[in-house]
Design a protein around this nucleic acid. Sequence first.
DNA 1: AATGTTTTTCCTGATT
DNA 2: AAATCAGGAAAAACAT
Length: 255
Amino acid sequence: MLDSVTHNTFLPNVSFCDPLMSWTDLFSNEEYYPAFEHQTACDSYWPSVHPEYWTKRHVWEWLQFCCNQYKLDANCISFCHFNISGLQLCSMTQEEFIEAAGVCGEYLYVILQNMRSQGYSFFNDPEETKATIKDYAVSSCLKTSGIKSQDCHSHSRTSLQSSHLWEFVRDLLLSPEENCGILEWEDREQGIFRVVKSEGLAKMWGQRKRNDRMTYEKLSRALRYYYKTGILERVDRRLVYKFGKNAHGWQEDKL
DNA sequence: AATGTTTTTCCTGATT
DNA sequence: AAATCAGGAAAAACAT
């Protein structure tokens, strides 16, 4: 899976600040994801800033990047431990990283230390990146290694972005900052929720996928496919859905 | 490169 | 009337 790191995601000769770089797909767009921490449009993009000077938002974006790029299981990461500035992040010891993110913490620690010492060349040179990361992949918390998130228990779930639609919906439901009234719980216990702003949801999903032609019509088709796989269950009310037995991570108690 | 899975797109028809 | 729901079919995108 590390191979993916070397592919098109690291385009040569592309500036790190270029907002059109492919892996920036991972991140939200200020327009629809309401800024937290009072960020404004003039805030820089994390790779263009030294880790020591990262804002909380930068830290957050960096985490998202790591999760997506290196396939770290976001469920291993305790978000509250990372609600800190770059300076605080840099002062964290390896132990603290492990404390905050289990095995993934080891990984994050290495990535950060490399970034600090080697700057962004760490990311610009696919081979080197691969080699550096490889040694640490062994103990990994990589999704593909088959380690389930339960193995990294004891940490509260995060709302870090995942690639699947249902996870996106779930995480939106669980993060009031980003939700802004688009989704609402109808019955928290039973996992029943309602799409309040259908077109807003489509827009957000479209942004995530870099697809401005997304509509609720099409998104809902994808949701209906989840009935078959037990991710969602049918609720015969308009714009109302229910998490099925194969959906995880939405329950309040069971984190 | 081959295959399986998820998502997107489009569509026809029913329901609210 | 306009949105939404239902799925079939096929293509595209993604993952392995």
